[in-house]
């Protein structure tokens, strides 16, 4: 069956295909926890999937750079250490991922390639088929529209679904996506004009509902040219709780720390775990000297990385996709998230 790049599938039939796939491959999808929180988990039945969510509180980067991950394990044979890489990850399907997270993934793709390719990241990445859900109903914290993070994407997905009511509009972004449809017998029909038109309308409506809150340009200029008043950084530094939440939930933040966990029998594991540039321990040197001892310097660092031209040029993208998670997660309520800081910088000279 030849499938066109934009196809239309009844929702139930798409999910049946997913169910067939699930028999052979791990499928990770959004599920609702008891209290109402959304989390992505491996599922055993497509009925577990919830569509009643916009974006999950914790970013999908955890499926590519887990919060804690083994770098290698070791044991001793005599006095000789023997180190071993972790086992290869298995193939899986990530279903229901939102555009902003996918854009975050694209950001990480760029970061983890280059002169030093991060094999641990790429193994997971290559084993994962992404089926994303374009957004039609933004949250009031969403500002992807300001950061080219959504609400839908042109590329970067294997498959992108748009909910048209009874059917999904399926956009095929890669050969792997096409293979998924074929292998699991998802009955696709070419999208008709009216389908495309409906989608166009939905997109338009979504765009209109979206209140752009992060006018990045001025902030980028101020930061790039180091024109932000020191007093404003002082103020923001004093407000920050240094909880690290903003970086932990950010789909673009990748920093990690490394530590060893030895066991009594001489075996052990070296892990990496998420770290945060908002922590004082992040830059403290062995001598006790700390170049970013003050929260102010750390807040400044975070925004330099997110919004300076130097980084945008290097990464091809600002370090923000507009998912809005840093708004919800911040203890310094509505003061230090990206839209808030962008606004503060815009009003500052």
């Amino acid at each position: 069956m030849q499938v066109s790049a934009k196809a239309i599938v009844p929702k139930t039939l798409f999910l049946e295909g997913l169910a067939r796939c699930m028999k052979k491959t791990e499928v990770i999808a959004p599920v609702k926890m008891k209290g109402g929180d959304i989390t992505f988990e491996p599922i055993s039945n497509v009925r577990q999937i919830t569509f009643d969510y916009v974006n999950d509180h914790d970013p999908l980067k955890r499926f590519f750079i887990p919060a804690r991950e083994e770098l290698f394990s070791y044991h001793f044979s005599g006095n000789k250490p023997v180190a071993k890489s972790p086992p290869q990850p298995k193939p899986r399907v990530l279903f229901g991922i939102r555009s902003c997270d996918l854009q975050g993934l694209a950001h990480m793709d760029g970061f983890f390639q280059g002169a030093f390719e991060d094999q641990l990241y790429w193994q997971r990445r290559q084993q994962t088929l992404t089926i994303s859900l374009a957004c039609t109903e933004p949250l009031d914290t969403c500002f992807c529209i300001c950061c080219n993070g959504g609400p839908w994407l042109e590329h970067g997905f294997d498959l992108q679904l748009t909910d048209l009511g009874e059917t999904f509009l399926v956009e095929i972004g890669s050969a792997a996506g096409r293979r998924f449809l074929e292998e699991w017998h998802v009955p696709c029909q070419s999208a008709k004009r009216k389908d495309l038109q409906l989608r166009q309308e939905l997109m338009q409506k979504c765009d209109e509902k979206m209140i752009p809150t992060a006018y990045l340009a001025k902030a980028c200029i101020q930061i790039t040219n180091n024109r932000v008043r020191e007093e404003l950084w002082d103020e923001m530094g004093a407000e920050c709780f240094s909880c690290g939440g903003c970086t932990h939930v950010c789909p673009c933040c990748t920093c990690f720390d490394v530590y060893d966990c030895p066991q009594e029998d001489g075996q052990g594991t070296r892990y990496r775990c998420w770290d945060s540039c908002q922590y004082a321990g992040f830059t403290r040197e062995a001598s006790g000297h700390n170049p970013r001892a003050k929260a102010k310097e750390r807040v400044k660092r975070r925004f330099y990385h997110k919004l300076s031209y130097a980084y945008i040029q290097q990464d091809g993208h600002p370090g923000c996709v507009g998912c809005g998670r840093c708004i919800t997660v911040c203890q310094a309520f509505n003061q230090l998230d990206v839209p808030a800081v962008v606004k503060r910088l815009r009003r500052d000279g």
Partner: peptide
């Protein structure tokens, strides 16, 4: 246990 994250519904 590999991570802790906040409960949004709390």
């Amino acid at each position: 246990v590999i991570s802790a994250s906040p409960q949004r519904s709390h």
